[in-house]
Design a protein around this nucleic acid. Sequence first.
RNA 1: GGGCGAUUAGCUCAGGGGUAGAGCGCCACGUUGACAUCGUGGAGGUCGGUGGUUCGAAACCACCAUCGCCCACCA
Length: 914
Amino acid sequence: MHDKYTPRDIEQKHYDRWRHLGCFAPAGEGPAYCIMIPPPNVTGTLHMGHAFQDTIMDALTRYHRMRGHKTLWQYGTDHAGIATQMVVERQLNAQGKTRHDLGRDAFEKAVWEWKAQSGGAISSQLAALGGSVDWETERFTMDAELSSAVTRVFVDLYREGLIYRGKRLVNWDPVLLTALSDLEVLSEEENGHLWQFAYPLSDGSGEMVVATTRPETMLGDTAVAVNPDDERYQHLIGKTIDLPLTNRAIPVIADDYVDPEFGTGCVKITPAHDFNDYDIGQRHNLPVINILNPDATLNEAVPSDFQGLDRYDARKKVVADFDALGLLRGIDDHRLMVPRGDRSQAVVEPYLTDQWYVKIEPLAKPAIAAVKNGDIRFVPENWSKTYYEWMHNIQDWCISRQLWWGHRIPAWYDGDGNIFVGNDEADVRAHYALADDITLERDNDVLDTWFSSGLWPFSTLGWPEQTERLATFYPTSVLVTGFDIIFFWVARMIMLGLKFAGDVPFREVYIHGLIRDQDGQKMSKSKGNVLDPLDLINGIDLDGLLEKRLTGLMQPHLAPKIEAATRKQFPDGIPEFGCDALRFTFATLATTGRDIRFELGRIEGNRNFCNKLWNAARFVRLSTSDAVAATPTPSTADRWIRSRLNATTADVHRHFEQYRLDLAAQALYDFVWHAYCDWYLELAKATLNDEAGSDGARAAAQQTLVDVLDAVLRLLHPLMPFITEEIWLSYGPQANDDTATLMTAAFPDSEAANDDPAAEADIEWLQSFTLGVRQIRGEMDISPGKPVPVILGNTANDDRDRLKRLGRLLSRVARIESIDEIADQDLSMAATAFVGELKLLVPLAGLIDIDAERARLARQRDKSAADLAKVQGKLANDKFVANAPADVVSKERERLDSLEKAVADLDEQIARLG
RNA sequence: GGGCGAUUAGCUCAGGGGUAGAGCGCCACGUUGACAUCGUGGAGGUCGGUGGUUCGAAACCACCAUCGCCCACCA
C-alpha cells in the first residue's frame, strides 16, 4: 500500500486481474441470481444514467456473488434500429451520400462496420466502472441466435392470430419515412391557430362554419359532422355542402363525438388524416381520401395547383384561397398539442398505410395478472400503478418500421399479394405447400427495436433451445431500470416472457430515478450540462471539458452560454475522483425519489471517504505489523466495535434486500468513519501504546483492528470494488495468494453472538464522558494536547464501576490528567459538563472565561428547561398517562427525573460562577 | 381531463405516531506519529398551509398552495 490514496494506480489493474481469474462467470454453488442489463445502444456511449444504473446492478451482482450465489450479470447491446440507422445515415450525408446511393445490402454492411468500430466503447466504459458482467456470454440483439428467436416469436404469434397485417392510420414520420408506435410519438403544446372556414350548403340555403387547426386537410374532407342533439343543425343533417377548392359535395352527418359547446359545433371530417375522423369515417362509411405523399407533400388526390406542395405551404395556400373566396370567417391564436417523432422531432402525420400489428389484449391480460398476483413486484411499489394505468388502456402495437437496419419481417408475398409467414423462404414454401414456380418476395420492413428487446431476458439465455442457462437463470431475479421505459420495455418483456418462456421474466422490477444536473435539469448535449462518468473518474481539465461540451453542437449559437456556465462551474476542470468514489456516490443517490441531482460536492465527500478508509487501513497495517504473541483478551472496546459491526452488517443486508443502496452506503459510511475511525482506532491506539497494559489486551486490539477492517472491506466491496480489493490484498494470507480476490470472498453475516449491549452501554458512557471533556476544552480554548484534571459530582455506583474498568482508557482517549470524586477545592472556578446525571468539573482557576462559561451553561440550561417543560406537560396529561404504552410513560418519567436534576445542577453551577 | 410524485438546516437529501438527522457549506480552534482529501467544538429547522384522527402528528387522513413528471382524440 502506498502512503497516498491515488485511485488511478489501483483501479484498472484489478479489473484486468479479475477478468484474467475468470471471476465474472457464474460460479457459486448457491441459488441462481441473475440480472439482465438493459442493453445499451451498440453504437452509443455510456452517460451518467447508465453509470448510475450499472453501479446499482454491479453492487447487487457483487453482493449476491459474495454470498455464494450462482450469479450472472448478463451483458449485451441493442441494435437500436432508428437511432443507429440515423447515426450511420448522418455519416453518409457528411460524405454527400444517402443510404439510397448505397442500396440496402451495402447500407446494412456499413452499419455492421460502424458497429464493429464503435461497439467497443461501451464495453471499456463498463469495465472502467468496475462492472462485473459475464463477458463470455455477451449478446447483441442482431446475433444469429437472437435473430432466430425473434423470427420464431413472430411466426408463432402470426400463426396464433396475434400478429396481423392491416391498413390503418398510423403515426407516420415524414422525415424518417417510417411508421412509429404510439410510444415513439411525443406530443407537446405549441402555439398555433384555429381557422374558421365557411362551407356553403349545396342547396344554396346558407353555409356551415367549421374550425380547424389544420386547414390543408380540408382537401381530404369527406363530411361535416354535428352533434345529433344539436338543435341548431338538426335540419341540415343529410344535406350536403359543396367543399370549396374541390369539386366535391360531402354530406352533413350526425355523430356523438362532436361537442356542441366547442367552436361552432360543426366539425370537418378528414378520415385519412386524423385518428378521430378516421373512426367517424368508419362509423359512417365515409370515403377515405389520402392527400399526402409519404414525405408530407400533397399528392395527386388534390387539385393540381396544390399537388407537390409541402403541407405547410399548402396550408398557407388553402387559407389564402378561402380568404380570396370570401369564405375565411376568422383566425384565432390557439394552443394545440403537436405530435412529434421522438427521434426526428418531425411533426408526425396520421397516415394510411399497411403495417404489421401485435394484437395486444390477449398478451396484456396475463401480464397484468402477473403483477397483481405478486409474481412480479415493483420496487418502489407505486410504480405498479403506472404499469396498470398503461396496460389497461393499451392499444395494438405497430411493429413494422420502414427502415433498413433491424430484424426483417419474416413474411413473403406472391404476385397476388398473398401473405406467407415463416422462418425462412423454404419454411414458407413447405408450410404453405407452394409450388416452386411461384415467386415470393420478402417484406421490406423491419421490426420495432423493442420487439427484440422484449425477448432479451430469455433470448440471451438460449431460448428457444431449452438450454441449461435458461433453466438456471430464468426467471431472472430483478430488473433494474428507469421509469421512462416501463411501457417501452418492461411491459413488453412481461407480456412476451409469459407467452414464450412460460414464466415471468423477472421477480422484481427495481425502478430508479433519473440523473439530472445540479440544478435539476436533464443532462443533454444541447444544454451543455453533460457530465461524462469517465471524467469524474479520471478528471479532466477545463479545456478538455470545454472541447467536449462545445464540439458537435446542433445549435452552435448556444456555445457562448455553455462556455460561460462551464467556466463558472468548473474553473479548474474536474479533479480525479476515482471510480470507487463515483460508485459510492451513485449508491448514496439511489433513493426512492424520481429525480436525482448530481452534485460535485457529494462525490468529493465520498472521495474523502475513500481516503479515510485508505488511511485507516494504513494505520491498521502499521499497528499490527509486529504481532503481539499472546492469548488475546478482548477489551470492552473490542467487544463494542464488534457489536456495532454486527448491527451494521445486519443493516447492510436489510438495505440490500430492500434495494436501498443509499441506506446501505450511509450505514457503512457512518460505521467506518464515525465508529471505527473516530473511536475504535483511537481506543486501540490507547491500548496499544499503553506501556502498563497487558500483552493480551494488545493482541486482542490487533486482532480486532484487522478483523473489523476485513469485514468492512467485504461489506464495502459491492459498492467500492477497487479500493477494497487493493487494501484487502495487501495484508493477511491473501497477500501471498495469486488467485485470491475479495470478489469471491464471503460476504459477512451478522451473528447474534456478537451483539454486546453491555459493551455498547459502556462505550457510549465513555463517549459522552469524552465529549463532555472535549466540550469544555473546546469552549474554554484549552489546547487539545493538554491533560486536564476532572472532578466528579453526582457519582453513581455505575459510574464508579465504569471508572474502575474504563478509567485508564478514558483518561488516555480524553486526555485527562486525573479523575477525583472529592472536591477539595473551590469549584466556582470550574467548567462543567454532564454525562447523564454524572457531573464533570474541570477546575480552571485563572484560565476560565467566566462569562463564556456562564453563557454556555445558560444555553444548556435553557434547552434542558424547554425539554423539561414538554415532559412535564405530557405527564400532567391524564390521558397520556392512561393511554400511552407503559414503556413510553416510564421513559418519560425517567426523562423528567434527569431533566429536573440537570436544570437544578446547571442552575447551581451558574450560581456558583457568580 | 385522468394518474403519479415532491415540499424537512444556507444547498442536496435521508427519516418517520413519543428527545429533529446526514453530507456539503458556514464560524472558532488545532502542525496530538493513519488521514489537513484531516481533527475538535459550535451556530443553524415552530419538517409548505389549514383542518381532522390520536393521550401525542413533522410523520396518518382530508382539503389548499407551489413545483415537477406521465398519460389522454376535443376540431
